[in-house]
Design a protein around this nucleic acid. Sequence first.
DNA 1: TTCCTCAACGAACGCCGTTCGCGACGAACA
DNA 2: TGTTCGTCGCGAACGGCGTTCGTTGAGGAA
Lengths: 252, 252
Amino acid sequence: MFVKYDAEVRATTGQTRPDNPRTRPAKAPLSREAVVEAALALVDEVGYAAVTMRRVAQALDTGPASLYVYVADRDELMAEVYDLALGQVELPGEADGDWRARLELLVGRAITVLGGHDDIALVALTGVQTGRHALRMSEETLRLLRAGGLGDAACVWAADLLDQYVTSSALERAGWLRSQRALEASASPADATEQAMSHAAGAELDAVFGALSPDEYPTIHALRGSMTAGGDSEARAAWKLKVIIDGLLAQP
Amino acid sequence: MFVKYDAEVRATTGQTRPDNPRTRPAKAPLSREAVVEAALALVDEVGYAAVTMRRVAQALDTGPASLYVYVADRDELMAEVYDLALGQVELPGEADGDWRARLELLVGRAITVLGGHDDIALVALTGVQTGRHALRMSEETLRLLRAGGLGDAACVWAADLLDQYVTSSALERAGWLRSQRALEASASPADATEQAMSHAAGAELDAVFGALSPDEYPTIHALRGSMTAGGDSEARAAWKLKVIIDGLLAQP
DNA sequence: TTCCTCAACGAACGCCGTTCGCGACGAACA
DNA sequence: TGTTCGTCGCGAACGGCGTTCGTTGAGGAA
């Protein structure tokens, strides 16, 4: 009853300041899970770098000090956020084809999901992740590679290589999405066709490569047409993954 | 006169590099180049994340505000530092073999050099680098790939893939070196044999994998012997690179 | 000599992650 | 009911960050 009253007052004033926070008899349900979920939502909303302990606390209507009951520090929180995001990756099933088709699907989904949460994949660069969902991904990757007939050591090294590929691709994709969003926000809504945006996105790189001296950088100059035309990023990603898997199968 | 005195004092104390009479007879010993060089030295000394504008300024015996005459912000400074580091990569020559041998050498050197400057490779994740040395690397990579007979589009995509590989490998290597250094510093100097360190380095991962339920993670459990035995990281890196290039050659 | 330009920098602003200790709360007990 | 006591949420503060602003003073031009 008091809780309800307090909550209502706070809701109508929009601030915790006016009333005495101490009058709260019972605290809203705070938990490690809630903190991590709030942080992931913030990553999507304001971006990885802008997720601060203060902002997470604010989203949960509390102070930054309260978060440290559930989380050791920002790094640990972000590691949890990373694993939560990884949980959104659906594992391919029987109907998705043989080991190779499933592996390609798994890697593609991981890149899509992680790249969709801004730079959360940066967490994977800080070391081997041992969260529940990270282990699930490793298990499935190794299982599929084994099904492909690779040797034990090759499986482990290949999983390592694929993990590097997923992480760097997710970060690349996150950066691309960010620039698209920035462009979309800045451009006048009238001419914001997708083609115009895509073209504008690569415009500065176009200029850089075009201005290069053909004598000093002959190959870049010769290929600048192919470099600018990023074209279908989907096809590019699929090509890269095919390269890696073909390479794996070429090993003894 | 005071300026001159200051310059002499600084030169004798070793704050700036040997006096070049041609450049700047009596000007302040500060320049964009000097700032970038000081920053790179700090990256090696205290690590990428700990390189702050204040520390760079301190190393140059000035205040942080003075740096902004030569550098727009920390990101731009770090991009310059990245390119300076890349300049330490020596391009393979005629004597190093065919295009493939040279490409493997180039990639290996890039990983070694970048990985040796802590997390400086993080810069490459913020977007396509267009510094002098970054372009030089791109030019050479594309040239070698073309010499390998790849088509125009394949060259560009392959260079992209190799760049991802270099960046992520450099960061992995930097992290490994960091943990080795930490271990070396913490362990008692008496038993600091390399084998003991290498073993201790993977000890916690060992424990994690060993504790996993064989039912939930059967493949990890089965391969945990191969996972822990990181073994020769040199061989692992060479294997990964071979996978990628073999994969490239398997494309139509 | 006088003036002008601009590199240099002290000081400050608004953030950040993290820590510490106060004091209100519920429980146990008289 | 009145009193004491342990728990723990969180306000307040600390040291440090990137960056900005306005002043200062030296070097070159006139």
